[in-house]
Design a protein around this nucleic acid. Structure first.
Lengths: 164, 164
DNA sequence: TAAGATTGAGCAGTCAATCTTA
DNA sequence: TAAGATTGACTGCTCAATCTTA
């Protein structure tokens, strides 16, 4: 449990754990970047991140995606995707139509208007991310990318062993 | 546009950017860990992460914290803290009392019951985090910690220069 | 006036229940 | 029966407006 941290006074030293501090730092970086992006999306475009994410997913698939595909791709629930897509459809950024093969499935596609809109947002977004990572050298970025890859594997393995 | 490496066809290559892929990976790791923790907190304790976070912040301050201090510490809005603390008070995990010096400020303190409850949650939480990072060597963890520190600095610098 | 806290409206997200089609 | 989608109830979050005390 408590491992290579500084303090290890009693038995547990719950808050002194190196892993816990690492996780807190990871969380803090992500939250900060996410907040920054959200704010700019709202201020400069009146847009939101979840809607941007849906558009980004659809942009890569000219034939559109089903609600289930979107849900799995964005890591959010089916009900959430349904609501998001419906408001995007109301704004004419996507169209929503039942699949001809299986009439249970509903397929969302980007409209021309949606595609143009996304291109605008994506360009700005790209610039913001570049700014935020500008303080890291290319080598550091590569290293961080690799370590996060290793973390991804670690998480997946932890899932396999534990329950659920 | 294509996301995972390889292509860099035209000029911008918006989605092919290394920074964007790095950000997406960072986000993905964080979301996955957070979801895992949330799920276990809910399944094993009927608890939620935001409530756990409030308890964790209060645990370190025997004299309690004001709503404003909690808000800044947890990086969430004042209104959110108010609501969270009120439900925790209803469950008798915290007490809420006006400050004697300045009667505008409201100070939250952990009850004995809240402290015991938190200890139980924290122990489990600590174990889950250890599991999730188990696949990384100590050296890798140290390296990741340092790189995230550099990223934190980079984000702070980006803020200083840009607007807002 | 302003600072701390609370309230209310609205978006995002989850889950469980339901509806429709396979 | 089951799979895909939708709906409804609920938590969490933000913001703007308000209330209270300085």
């Amino acid at each position: 449990m408590g491992s290579s941290g500084i303090r290890e006074k009693h038995d547990g030293a719950l808050e002194g754990s190196a892993n816990l501090r690492l996780w807190l730092r990871l969380l803090s970086c992500t939250i900060t970047i996410e907040k920054r992006v959200k704010r700019r999306l709202a201020d400069q475009f009146g847009a939101t991140l979840p809607r941007f994410d849906v558009l980004a997913a659809l942009e890569r698939k000219p034939d559109g995606m089903t609600m289930g595909e979107l849900s799995r791709s964005l890591l959010v629930s089916n009900g959430n995707v349904t609501a998001l897509v419906q408001t995007l459809a109301a704004d004419d950024y996507v169209t929503l139509s039942p699949s001809p093969d299986d009439r249970r499935v509903s397929r969302a596609r980007l409209t021309r208007r949606g595609s143009a809109y996304f291109a605008e947002l994506a360009k700005a977004h790209h610039g913001w991310i570049d700014e935020l990572f500008a303080g890291l050298s290319p080598a550091e970025r590569g290293h961080l990318h690799n370590l996060l890859g290793a973390l991804k594997v670690s998480i997946a393995e932890a899932q396999g062993e534990g329950e659920r």
